[in-house]
Design a protein around this nucleic acid. Structure first.
Lengths: 158, 158
DNA sequence: CCATCTGTAACAAGATAGGTTACATGTCTT
DNA sequence: AAGACATGTAACCTATCTTGTTACAGATGG
């Protein structure tokens, strides 16, 4: 794998769910994300545990939003997927004995902590509704997007 | 592997080399880093190509600094090891067709770019000499550290 | 009862840093 | 010239983590 795309994927799908008139099945969502229904259920489980979405089993079941997109920040979703590591670089060991190594890791750690704080602050202050608004500005007609066919399919089968 | 530790390791070893009165072999350096001599040569090759260290083959050969630590920034070393990815998170595809996905990735990308800019700015303004100075403040007597035995061993064999 | 969902375990795939072995090449000492 | 000592590098394995996939148990509604 190259990079962890769960945050991006969950934001993506939550916006679609907001525009969806009914519950979306894992299968439907998996097609939006070009992946597998099990991957969807696995990742969305965290969002359900944190109360951002609900899932219903059985016939007619599926996923739906549990609150408005303006009530969910990027930080919320980041935490709901388990706060995966943000950085791909870091020290070689956690608690080095060598004092030189300690000094190196302290300096590097300071820079990383600053960058992390900035990133999480952005996550904290941006809601998913903000992103949806960006989308609406790009597509003011409110018309089709790449997943329009999936919505139609869902409409036909429902 | 969990995280890329090449930057941390190279900073660490460059400070030791600065305190080393003679060339250090890959074998000696590998013991400092608790790794293998081939890994050392592989990683240091980038630093050599960028002119921060020199290597000599054959009897009595090894590695030495090509310039003062105050003339090398963390950014220099980051670039010399090949600018590996800084973040572990990111979009799922590079150029999504879905406009919702584009909006998500744009917003996420903005936050990541801000954090990256901050991090690289820190890297740019910190020299390895700054880190060495931090070490000296922790160890004002200038005495032993965990690698003292390796220095002594090098002294005995040289 | 059965089709349709989610929930979850189990395992394979793909990517990448790091570890290891093997060997070619260069260089100093004797 | 021979041999010890170093780097240079290819080749392959290992560890780790996200993602993909298969299989199946359990819940739900017609």
């Amino acid at each position: 794998m190259r990079r962890d795309s769960r945050l991006s994927r969950m934001l993506h799908v939550l916006i679609h769910m907001d525009r969806h008139y009914k519950r979306a099945t894992s299968e439907t969502i998996s097609k939006m994300l070009c992946t597998n229904a099990v991957v969807v259920r696995r990742t969305m489980a965290g969002l359900r545990d944190f109360g951002y979405v609900r899932s219903e089993q059985g016939h007619g079941g599926g996923w739906e939003l549990a609150r408005g997109l303006d009530q969910i920040t990027l930080l919320d979703i980041y935490e709901a997927i388990g706060k995966p590591p943000l950085f791909a670089i870091g020290p070689s060991v956690d608690q080095p004995e060598c004092l030189v190594e300690q000094a190196v890791d302290a300096k590097l750690g300071d820079a990383l902590k600053e960058a992390e704080a900035l990133l999480l602050e952005r996550f904290r202050t941006v809601t998913i509704a903000d992103i949806a608004a960006d989308f609406d500005r790009r597509m003011p007609e409110g018309q089709c997007n790449i997943h329009g066919n999936i919505h139609a399919e869902q409409s036909a089968s429902g």
